[in-house]
Design a protein around this nucleic acid. Structure first.
Length: 424
RNA sequence: AGAGAGGUGGCAGAGUGGUCGAAUGCGACGGAUUCGAAAUCCGUUAUACCGGCAACGGUAUCGGGGGUUCGAAUCCCCCCCUCUCUGCCA
């Protein structure tokens, strides 16, 4: 959530940013917010003044009662009624205005960083790096959804039977490969200085709200109505919310956490072409890295996170490229996002396997996540996160890119983690 | 899940209708003492919002929400959470 103070003091900058994100009606909505804020201040002042008078009267009544002047107390009591009414009216209107203000504010996306390219669609994303040669495939190379059948390592039919579409069952070497990748990613994160955490995978409403999934993407999360809990779409949600409502001591910054969790996404409305096999699932595994940092450090840290993720892909010997997302393609809450895509050789396309973002203060504002700046004032921190990495598409690329006549050869780095060197 | 107890400042812990934002202790910070340190002593030590250039003033907050009252940490109702016992269970 953007800060009203920013809307007020840097209106032009805000409007330019919203335009880059292709947010419609920005001018009207920002103006409405500023009006609401003005009204809010006014009502707050009215309320406080009436309340202050009422408090003063109550104090006087207290004094009179103590000294036994009952009649005097009664006289003063008579005067409290109107004040009480004034306070009540102001408070009610204040609540209304605050609610409207909140609703309007929450609708605005984060402002893009100055380096974010203009543009509306994925075609406008900027390729900032490309690494590794694309492999030569043997004749009759298969896409991963054929390979998993051939080697019987992932079973979609079984998943259909016990749950539904998009919930595959990993078997044998497929299951072991999953476990190996998770361990590899977690070990790499630990070596890079991230503390491992294992959070709950169900979160409450406040958490969904804190990181911005709610109210925006309500329909994209699985929801348990009985207990009003949400299955997490990413470990970003529980891990970042660990620090909700906190004032973090600067010497503890930056906070670095890594966590493995399954992730659940309803993916309502996003089933079209290109979703075969492992390309898009309702449940998948991911290791996520999260950092909480001082504002002046956050962009350096984003680069560091990107380098960490690139390192993982290099160790896995996968060809990849890095995109800087354009204003129209980046997420609602992000200020700058790098997407990392691996080359899926048999499909002949790039698959997104990671997304690393700096949210600046957008999440922190909702989370009330602060530090104490020079002079003792509290200031909002910056939050960042990245996938390091999401498994299914990594598996897809590993299978497709490394297929040979006699099985699928796994990269060196996974041998000890898997306990085998090839599948099949 | 049932019965009972309880949720107060960074922590511990008083306070059961009237200057209570809240005693006291610990911790932290600043200062004095010291060559330096420990000990000791003095002081400071929440957050948000409103007004103000500021100094400062005001309002709210004692798990959350609502109510009673001139006045609520304190009384009433609902919800959440924690602990103990019983039951169930990986």
């Amino acid at each position: 959530m953007l800060q009203v103070s920013v809307l007020k003091e840097q209106t032009d900058l805000v409007l330019a940013g919203l335009a880059k994100k292709h947010y419609p009606n920005a001018e009207t909505e920002v103006a409405a917010i500023l009006d609401l804020d003005q009204r809010r201040r006014q009502l707050q002042t009215e309320h406080d003044q009436a309340q202050a008078e009422a408090n003063e009267l109550a104090r006087q009544i207290g004094g009179l009662m103590k000294s036994g002047d009952k009649a005097g107390a009664e006289t003063l009591k008579a005067r409290t009624a109107t004040l009480k009414q004034q306070t009540k009216t102001a408070a009610e209107e204040l609540t209304q205005v605050e609610t409207s203000l909140q609703l309007a504010l929450v609708k605005l996306p984060n402002l893009p960083h100055s380096s974010v390219p203009a543009g509306r669609t994925p075609a406008d994303n900027e390729v900032v790096a490309e690494h590794g040669p694309k492999p030569e495939l043997p004749p009759h190379a298969l896409p991963h959804w054929e390979l998993i059948k051939k080697y019987d390592i992932i079973d979609f039919e079984l998943g259909n039977k016990i749950t539904g579409a998009g919930f595959p069952v990993y078997k044998g070497q497929g299951a072991r490969l999953q476990r190996a990748l998770i361990n590899f990613f977690l070990d790499e994160a630990r070596n890079a200085g991230y503390e491992e955490v294992q959070p709950p995978i169900l979160v409450n409403e406040a958490s969904g709200y804190g990181t911005g999934q709610l109210p925006d993407k309500d329909g994209q999360m699985y929801h348990d109505a009985q207990d009003n809990l949400y299955l997490i779409p990413t470990a970003e949600v529980p891990i970042t919310n660990l620090y909700r409502d906190e004032i973090i001591a600067t010497e503890k910054l930056p906070i670095r956490n890594a966590g493995y969790t399954p992730c659940f996404r309803r993916e309502a409305g996003s089933w079209g072409a290109d979703v075969r096999g492992l390309n898009r699932l309702h449940q998948f595994d991911k290791v996520e890295i999260v950092q909480i940092a001082l504002p002046e450090q956050s962009y350096g840290i984003l680069e560091e996170m990107r380098a960490h993720i690139e390192g993982l892909l290099q160790k896995l010997e996968l060809p990849y490229r890095v995109l800087r997302l354009c204003g129209g393609d980046m997420s609602f809450t992000s200020a700058l996002t790098y997407d990392l895509e691996v080359w899926s050789a048999a499909q002949g396309r790039w698959l997104e396997v990671s997304s690393a973002s700096n949210f600046e203060t957008y999440q922190a504002n909702r989370l009330k996540l602060r530090y104490r700046a020079e002079g003792g004032k509290t200031q909002l921190l910056h939050t960042l996160n990245g996938s390091a990495l999401a498994l299914p598409r990594i598996v897809a690329a590993l299978l497709e890119n490394n297929q040979t006549e006699d099985g699928i050869r796994l990269p060196q780095v996974l041998h000890s983690y898997c306990g085998f060197e090839k599948i099949g």
